[in-house]
């Protein structure tokens, strides 16, 4: 009797372990941090190409939301997404902030001259530490913050028209 019980116990154990492995086969393996609803500290960042320093909260004028797009001239996908960024700038209620990530000023300026400058303001993250405060880890990355600096949406990688529609819905 005891032997039969331990057999049944082990049988169920093995099957459930197999089931768990089966489930995890279909999970996303690469880790992508989900820090939606995190509140960001009101950090100060230097403006691109000037010596002005802005606190994030002070950037809001009468917009309710802020989009921060992290980009760099050396990042190829950033070139791809740039046309969509222009669409992003057409959304009302949304302050469009560019964060230039670990870039040389000259190259970044050339990038903007070639492709246009859709941003309301560009800040500069020369050593990459400001992006860490935003919970970002690469380029391109786009975050939508509300007026309390809470992350309400985050997109890793180049944005597309579907993402823009989602952002439109969020900010309405």
């Amino acid at each position: 009797m005891r032997i039969r019980l331990s057999f049944i116990f082990l049988f169920i154990l093995v099957s459930s372990i197999a089931l768990i492995f089966y489930k995890s086969l279909f999970e996303e393996k690469n880790y992508i941090p989900k820090n939606i609803n995190n509140k960001i500290e009101n950090i100060s960042i230097k403006e691109f190409n000037t010596e002005n320093i802005f606190f994030l909260k002070n950037l809001f004028e009468d917009e309710k939301f802020m989009a921060i797009n992290i980009w760099a001239s050396w990042c190829l996908p950033c070139r791809e997404e740039h046309q969509y960024i222009k669409n992003l700038s057409r959304i009302d209620n949304l302050k469009l902030v560019g964060l230039n990530y670990k870039d040389k000023t000259k190259n970044a300026q050339k990038f903007l001259e070639d492709l246009g400058n859709p941003f309301d303001i560009i800040l500069s993250d020369t050593d990459g530490t400001k992006s860490i405060f935003l919970g970002a880890y690469g380029v391109p990355e786009t975050l939508i913050l509300d007026s309390e600096l809470k992350i309400i949406k985050k997109h890793i990688g180049p944005i597309n028209s579907k993402i823009i529609d989602e952002i439109k819905n969020l900010t309405n």
Binding site: Y101, K102, D127, G128, T129, I132, G138
Partner: peptide, 9 residues
């Protein structure tokens, strides 16, 4: 780049 930034931070 990320790792270098973290080290700086």
């Amino acid at each position: 780049e990320f790792a270098l930034s973290v080290k700086t931070l």
